[in-house]
Design a protein around this nucleic acid. Sequence first.
DNA 1: GCGACAG
DNA 2: ATCTTGTCGC
Length: 285
Amino acid sequence: MKLSEKGFSYCALLPMSMEQEPSTSENNTSLQLLNEWIEIQDSLKERLITEDGFSWKVPPIKEVAQENQDSHGGEILKYVGGVDLSFSKDDPSIACAALVVLDFSTLEVVYEDSAIVELRIPYVPGFLAFREAPVLLELLERMKKTALPLYPQVLMVDGNGLLHPRGFGLACHLGVMADLPTIGIGKNLHHVDGLTQSRVRQLLEDNGNSCTDILTLIGDSGSTLGAAIRSTEGSLKPIFISVGHRISLASAVKIVKSSCRFRVPEPTRQADIRSKDCLRKHGLN
DNA sequence: GCGACAG
DNA sequence: ATCTTGTCGC
């Protein structure tokens, strides 16, 4: 049941309305599983919120006078989480998942946890959540029990949110399951709804010469799927931000831009670094 | 028909 | 995701 191997074109992932081609029993089993996954995504999607669903405020600009927050007396964003997985080079089913929490104003790590796991679900484009979400949810649950005061107000995920074939990527999946605001961070574009590398590259150049370094990604369907930004001055390659859950794209972009020391925002970057360290410490890699 | 396909 | 060297730069 190697779903990640050939034989699974995207066409085959569409809900089967008519009869199937003559196929092997293994293929049928896999198709059945994919359809179950699609049903799960569709049903979770009913709980998805794509607007700001929190009571805190994003501090205006950086480093200035952030201690004057009580002008509105409201809670401000302080704890930003990040999650990522790294894999053993030998055994692709062995991974380390990491959850970090950073102080938004200093970008210093204030919490870190990780876990070595064996993943039994393969990576299938469009279904990343079924592979990676379970461990990450465990890490979030563990933190609730042991370090609740530091629990993140928003979580950055290495993977897309709305920028997904069915509008429900890993970031959405995690957000809904954990009932937590989430932001999807993609390092590569997942081609969907007519968005291609060349098209984005094109738009980014046209737009880039003007003034803004933010490009809103609108698919052929007309819906807004996310934004492409050049986080660092030097990096021509953009990152792709999309709404995960309980946050608007505008807020997501604001938070991500304030979290970038390098191309990849610190929360996700630190989770990546520490998950790799974790693998080494355990003699893997 | 060939290619495209988050991590 | 991972396999890979040197190299340019802060």
